[in-house]
Simulated assay, not measured.
Amino acid sequence: MRLDISELRRLHPELAYEFFRCNDELAKSAASPSQHSHPDFSTTASHETDRRYNTGRKLEQVIETIRSHPGFERFVLAPTEDEMKSAAIRGPVVILNVSRYRCDALIVERHGLRHLQLHGLHKSDIQNYAATLDSSSVTTQLLEWLWDTIAGPVLDFLNFTQSPVADLARIWWIPTGPLMKFPIHAAGYHATGSKTVLDRVVSNYSSSIKALFHFRENQLKVEMPGLPERAVLVGMQNTPGQTKLPFASQEINELRGICDSLELQVCMPPPNVDGVLSSLRDCEIFHFAGHGETDPSDPSMSAIILEDGKITVARPLQTNLYARKPFLAYLSACSTGRMKNSDLMDEGLHLIAACQLAGFQHVIGTLWEVNDKSCVEIARKT
């Protein structure tokens, strides 16, 4: 829903306020603690049900009013077929649909929509691999299985059959369910030539078709300068309550030199919540090197950790960066794209998605724990 709000706030702020008021009211009532122990529980529950019903009806009326205004006819609706195809203007989009009946790749291209049944992929196998999947269990067997069951068939279907001599084509993956945990971009037989995703295409991920369409549409409106102007660099070598990261400072120092050579204005704000959030409002690049954590019960509380607290998934969503549309957020921390709650896999409630929804055009993050020293090399090369 937040994808449609920026323009609404600008043109019809009173409707945006009412929309959020109804949403927040429903969210609060859904999150309120159980009152079974209260002596008037049945009366309280009945009143709460009536209130939720009335708020829900009010929200429907607000949405109808919003859709009556020019330019908002499809407010919070799914994208049309033409909108889906426009999302694939820079490369095909592959939605990996998992069910107990069969698994398919739903493929969106500029000229149409196609599907490919993935005959070798079964939900039970996915669940078995996902049950123990972390950075230490990414084996050649797993990467070859991902190639045989998903990446290989899809790339062959799209005619990406060889390693090109010129620039690699791009592809956008939208995994669903437990496949959200898997490194599809790394699938392949890495010891035998070009049977790998990395050799054939540049992989990107998105949380949904609608999100990708939205960012495609907004990127066309951005007047991109020759180079990003301001880079915000935050390094946390010492984090309260966490292990020391001896290479975090080296990472920031090396990046500062690179930014200087590119004539970027470097900003190194105080490593606290207010300092970092305020610095995001006028940056083009945000780079964080430090600790991240995943909340298994409430993914919206997953966070990067600073001196005085945490920047959770919810905080970037409250920071409207659409006016500037900053270029890149680079989250060099553990588990910034990780989801532990299997019931919420498809909701995209992690820091990577939050930064993109907040307004960053591009986000780089991590699936699991990462090695401190390796982060320096990867950041420098990026």
Rank of each mutant, 00 (worst) to 15 (best):
H36V: 08
W173K: 02
K244C: 10
K210F: 13
P153T: 07
G112R: 10
Y189Q: 03
M1V: 10
K310A: 10
S249C: 02
Y53T: 10
G91L: 08
A333F: 06
F247H: 05
D104I: 13
E109W: 10
L3Y: 09
R110W: 07
R74I: 03
A166N: 10
L351C: 05
K210P: 01
I305E: 03
Q356P: 00
A105L: 11
L344I: 02
N218Q: 12
P79E: 05
T243L: 13
V234F: 05
T192H: 09
S124K: 06
L331R: 00
K210S: 11
E144N: 12
A151T: 04
F75T: 00
S137F: 08
P153D: 08
F160A: 02
N204T: 10
Q237P: 00
Q265H: 12
S342P: 01
L155H: 04
G56Y: 09
I378W: 09
R51W: 13
V313L: 09
I126H: 04
H350R: 05
R200D: 04
E14L: 15
D156R: 11
I150K: 03
D308S: 08
L142P: 01
I252F: 05
F160I: 01
D134E: 11
D372W: 11
V202R: 06
N320W: 10
S342T: 12
I66H: 03
S163A: 15
T161M: 12
H214S: 15
E263G: 02
Q141T: 09
E25P: 01
P13N: 09
E81H: 10
L118N: 04
S124A: 09
H115G: 03
T55C: 08
G257Y: 05
A323F: 09
S136C: 04
Q356H: 12
L367F: 15
S124F: 00
N341D: 14
G257P: 00
F213G: 01
T312F: 10
